[in-house]
């Protein structure tokens, strides 16, 4: 699923009742994975896939930074003198 769909439209795609789909959507919204809006009587579900992918990529950049630091900490700790400069 990508983009925007109504809850009733989603229910037609899966062998589930509208109520069951609504429960699943509520869990996804709680997790920040979808965004809910209302249009008249219809409830629309919009995925936040782009935002999540962007956040994931940026976290990967910070992971790279910190892995470098952890490697260097390992080097400092590996020295017999206990990390002091000779």
């Amino acid at each position: 699923m990508n983009g925007t769909l109504s809850v009733s439209g989603l229910a037609r795609l899966y062998p589930m009742s509208t109520t069951a789909v609504q429960k699943h959507v509520a869990v996804l919204e709680e997790a920040g994975l979808v965004h809910l809006t209302r249009r008249g009587r219809q409830q629309l579900v919009q995925t936040e896939i782009d935002t999540i992918a962007e956040a994931h990529a940026m976290l990967a950049e910070f992971e790279r930074l910190w892995r470098g630091r952890l490697d260097r900490i390992g080097d400092v700790l590996a020295e017999p003198a206990g990390g002091d400069r000779p």
Partner: peptide, 9 residues
């Protein structure tokens, strides 16, 4: 663990 929803690493 990268959590892109909670924005934690």
């Amino acid at each position: 663990d990268r959590d892109p929803v909670a924005l934690t690493l």
